[in-house]
């Protein structure tokens, strides 16, 4: 059986070149024209970015709507968007614009952020590399995950869902090759709701599920 190749990834944020947004209308204007890498960063890569925050939402737009626009309705609507449920980032953009338009139409005055609370549009450079680690047997997976960096957890569990097989993490995809005996384990992994976990918490959760359900 082909061993599991442990990869790692690290990220560095940079300015996108777009001006910051100080109001909901400005946010709409910028989202309409920003590159898809900007959307990708603010939806997908926030977990990898250095932060002291432990926000309610994993996407930056929802956090901004809550904290800076003081608009909990908009925050909730942005917050529930699952970027992996869209077939492309353009579809995600379109959904965001619809939400903003609906919100602008439903409130008398479009909200604005306080000075210093503007939304900055970022993108990121990500470096991906092979760690040299290999996993041969399913029983080796849990201890190997426990040793992984949060970058490896992100790459194999979160970002993997955008690669073939779409919607599946790399661990489950690899375990699938071992047949029915790993079914319970795969089910356990695929039922993790990653929306409320930091990468460290996710690593712990994966290890616990691997230990409890199968291997």
């Amino acid at each position: 059986m082909t061993p599991f190749v442990v990869m790692d990834c690290v990220l560095l944020t940079r300015m996108s070149g777009l001006p910051e947004a100080a109001s909901l209308r400005e946010l709409r204007e910028r989202i309409a024209v920003c590159g898809v890498n900007v959307l990708y960063h603010h939806f997908h890569e926030t977990l990898l970015r250095p932060s002291f925050d432990y926000p309610d939402y994993h996407n930056d737009f929802a956090v901004w709507a809550k904290l800076q626009l003081s608009d909990p309705v908009l925050a909730e609507r942005f917050g529930i968007l699952d970027p992996y449920s869209f077939s492309s980032l353009e579809e995600l953009r379109s959904a965001m614009l619809d939400i903003i338009d609906e919100r602008i139409n439903s409130i008398p005055v479009a909200r604005a952020a306080p000075r210093g609370g503007e939304f900055y549009f970022f993108e990121a450079d990500t470096v991906v590399f092979d760690t040299g680690d290999r996993i041969s047997e399913p029983a080796e997976l849990a201890p190997a995950v426990a040793r992984m960096t949060t970058g490896s957890v992100f790459f194999h569990f979160i970002e993997a869902q955008r690669r073939e097989p779409i919607g599946m993490d790399d661990f489950s995809a690899w375990l699938l090759r071992f047949g029915d005996e790993t079914q319970a384990c795969r089910d356990a992994l695929q039922s993790i709701d990653t929306g409320f976990l930091t990468l460290s918490e996710l690593r712990k959760e994966i290890c616990e599920r691997l230990a409890a359900h199968c291997l």
């Binding site: 890498n37 993108e123 470096v127």
Partner: peptide, 14 residues
Amino acid sequence: HSILSGSSEPRIYV
């Protein structure tokens, strides 16, 4: 890594 790669892609495999 990023600037030495010369790549304009946001993802660099090294």
